[in-house]
Amino acid sequence: MEEVTESKVVLYDPTLRDGHHAVRHQLDADQLRAYATAADQAGVPVVEVGHGNGLGASSHQLGQAKLSDDEMLTVVRESLTRSRMGVFLAPGWGTGADLAGAVARGADVVRIAAHCSQADVAERHLGEARAAGVEAQAVLLMSHMIGPAELAEQCALLISYGAQAVGIMDSAGHYLPTDVTTRITAVTRAVGEVPVIFHGHNNLGLAMANSLAAVTAGATVIDGCARGFGAGAGNAQLEVLAAVLQRTGHPTGIDLHQLLAAADIAEARLMSAPPTIDSISLVSGLAGVFSGFKLPVLEAARRGGVDPVDVLFELGRRQVVAGQEDQIPAVVRQLQRT
């Protein structure tokens, strides 16, 4: 990243990727274009786009997207003049061929994701991203499942594989600020000059506090979505992050007025209502279950005539991770038997 001063924070915007979880991956080309154009005008550094689970993930298991990866990337690329385009790839869902396709369609930043303790599954695709000449970032999903020392070790591994920024996602919205402080502190100590990423969810109403804790502990790439548009109770809210970081002396380089306009467009065009901490999202955060399970759990529980709260606690007990959506009907069947 250019001109990094001590206090500068880069806001990374996965509205058009993580937000897809809130609308069953059904954003159309006009919606993508409207938001990407507005975010670009506001000077958002990176606009990430794709299926909620990233490249190659459109499926019955993870939800079928309205548009193909190619269609999404083409529309967003055309809408961006200065923002960089980001994509998300989790090995096992997406492949090297998907990565190459995204680079060919103009992706500037490729984020390779692995579940908390599995940095080594990202090794190959980080190498491929570097070889393709794009910025290669790496993130650990469901990071609450392991402790600070182990996360730090995993982040150091990711750097050894070529990652140019590394960090942790609070995929379940489970963290308290002190959890974030200890983890980001451990990670920043382990990675030296490499930028550290934090991605927060709001299931416990702490996305903003957690993001601020991450910045205080040394993270310099913070994820936020317009109006919090994202899985479950939503993500750290991008425009609020920009305002709060400005007040706390961390310039983001974003035009706040234009960002507010982009957030208004997001609210008007992308969602029926901004995310809220409803009962199911709160339980999901408490139980440590991936926020993207919210809609599939609600639907399976309704069809099966069981309480979605019970479903979530059992999924938490089973320590399921994103991608294991088949465990939702399995838990519903178990509850029906008891």
Binding site: S59, S117, Q118, M145, Q319, V320, Q324
Partner: peptide
Amino acid sequence: VKALLNLSPAQ
């Protein structure tokens, strides 16, 4: 045909 693979960190 589509194949997906998850690796579970559960203990």
